[in-house]
Amino acid sequence: MSTTVAEKKEKVSVPFDYNKYLRPNKLPHIWCPGCGHGIVLKAMLRAIDKAGLDKNNIALVSGIGCSSRTPGYVDFNTLHTLHGRALPFATGIKLARPEMKVIVVTGDGDALAIGGNHFIHACRRNIDITVLVFTNATYGMTGGQYSPTTPLESIATTSRYGNIEPPFDTCEMAKASGATFVARGTAYHTLELEKTIHEAITHKGTSVVDIIDACPTYFGRANKFKSATHMMEEIEKDGTVNVKQAANLPPEKLAGKMLRGVLHKVEGPEYCEKYDILIKEKASAKK
């Protein structure tokens, strides 16, 4: 009898211990009630744990914005840099210390507007950096201006009568620029997001994950969403389809929906490796 109980106890799942990766004295974080960034941060920590990475060997780099506050709360090597310039800093770290795992956390405005140029060139180089783009379709930190991913006709503080600019598709842009791993996840599908981030982290080359999460304070309030839950259900659950399910669905059911999951994965020559080969070749030629 006692063995049965012991066996049962072994099967018990213990909740994930986030504290081993956090700086607990920095909590509570600054994000508003219901903000999806916290959910994404948790999924990222679980994915890092699953990949078995040493926290002293990870560099987490960010720019400016709500999402870019993430490095403040985690106990890795962290860098909080200039607006839009997280990727150049990350590229520098990767070139100086190629053995390090470099992860960039950035918002949609930070990555695609202010740092848009850096984003496409990091993808083009295929340098081994993981870019997590927290897409909340607004500039939360500065008061809810519309961003490059704000959907058409959405209300923002700078588009009071509806946004007339078509939004960027982050994944299509990353793929076209040359990233070798492109995926999309949402804060609602948190376990799927954990798997996607894990796959992105373990991929060799530039990996981009577009993560849809909610800004209830600005985007939600301006666009008549009742709560964070309402936003998560309407935008993240009903507004996306897994890429595997989408293969069996008729086109009319896919209209207006974003694809989730791994959208593009190829192998390609990595920048740091190519650089090493070049240096070795030239050094041996001189001798």
Binding site: P15, W31, G34, G36, H37
Partner: peptide
Amino acid sequence: CDLRCPDFAIQVFD
């Protein structure tokens, strides 16, 4: 509840 809590505020122990 633990998976979707954005604030590290809730966990379920067995």
